[in-house]
């Protein structure tokens, strides 16, 4: 009934490695916005999946208006960034010191966003075209260009984000605000603007990930829910508040998921449960995650 252990010939191996890299990159890409909003800012954002979903719908709207898929990748983060600004101004700003209320408020936002896209676009599933169709030859494997593009985008996004927070004034000020709001205000940083910018940037990344991942997925109003859970898992296992942690979390969880599913092919549910078990063990013995924050406020 069940296919036996996969006989891995080298070409097969290269294929599996590439597929794993794409799925790891997808996880990291979607989780990157949450690393900022939850990891750095401490906002329990249950609307993260919905923001990703809005990004995917934005890509769909741009494409169905006849514009290039490339444009959809540019517009999606802008639109979702604006949604993030609206969220921050109306809700999040008032809840920075009330994490449990944030939980309810952001879940409420998620439901509102889901219903809003249903009203605007109807209930049927949508499909989004990738910016580049076709395949390339990689490691001897014929591989879809878009799947390779996802890997590239994840690397670029993480590099830019890490650089932004480590080397630019805006990024460093944002970190200062997050670590000690009063002290940052005392030295003359406009904390309100800084919070808003940081939240908007995190949201924009969620929107970008939605637009990039959409061609692989079925675009519908509830598509973000499973990605929300995966993103929290990646951020928490990897280490809350560090970008290297998110990368480590994505590599570990995405890698194990693909490895287990290859080794015990035919038992997908068990393979996925085994990944969760590993995550539990890690959190039990390393509560700060794989890559804990260094020199943080707490």
């Amino acid at each position: 009934m069940i296919s036996t252990l996969a006989t891995t010939i080298p070409l097969q191996l290269a294929d599996r490695v590439l597929i794993s890299l794409t799925s790891i990159s997808g996880l990291i890409l979607v989780a990157s916005g949450l690393t900022i909003i939850f990891g750095l800012m401490g906002v329990l954002n249950l609307a993260h999946g919905a923001l990703m979903m809005v990004g995917a719908y934005t890509a769909y709207a741009v494409q169905s208006a006849g514009f290039s898929p490339w444009l959809s990748i540019v517009i999606a983060p802008l639109v979702v960034g604006l949604v993030g600004v609206a969220m921050e101004v109306t809700l999040i700003r008032r809840l920075y010191d009330r994490p449990l209320d944030t939980l309810l408020a952001t879940w409420g936002v998620a439901i509102v966003l889901q219903e809003a896209v249903t009203i605007a676009f109807g209930t049927s599933q949508k499909s989004v075209a990738p910016p580049m169709e076709g395949s390339i030859s990689l490691l001897g494997v014929t591989y879809p260009i878009h799947w390779a593009f996802i890997i590239v985008v994840a690397v670029v996004v993480m590099a830019i984000t890490i650089g932004l927070f480590a080397y630019t004034d805006i990024g460093i000020m944002a970190l200062a605000v997050i670590q000690d709001r009063e002290m940052a205000a005392a030295v003359g940083i406009n904390t309100r603007v800084s919070d808003r910018t940081t939240f908007a940037f995190g949201s924009a990344l969620a929107g970008l990930s939605g637009a990039i991942m959409a061609p692989l997925l079925s675009v519908n109003s509830t598509m973000g829910i499973s990605w929300l859970a995966d993103s929290f898992l990646v951020v928490i296992v990897g280490g809350i508040g560090t970008f290297t942690g998110t990368i480590a979390g994505g590599v570990l969880l995405g890698g194990l998921d693909n490895l287990f599913r290859t080794v015990i092919s035919g038992y997908t549910s068990i393979a996925q449960a085994a990944v969760l078990l590993v995550a539990l063990v890690i959190i039990r013995y390393r509560p700060q995650g794989l890559v804990p924050t260094t020199g943080g406020g707490e």
Binding site: D257, S265, G266
Partner: peptide, 14 residues
């Protein structure tokens, strides 16, 4: 093979 994936399974690559 007779193979089942959980409802809502998304990552089909492998």
């Amino acid at each position: 093979a007779e193979d089942y994936v959980p409802l809502g399974f998304t990552d089909w690559g492998s």
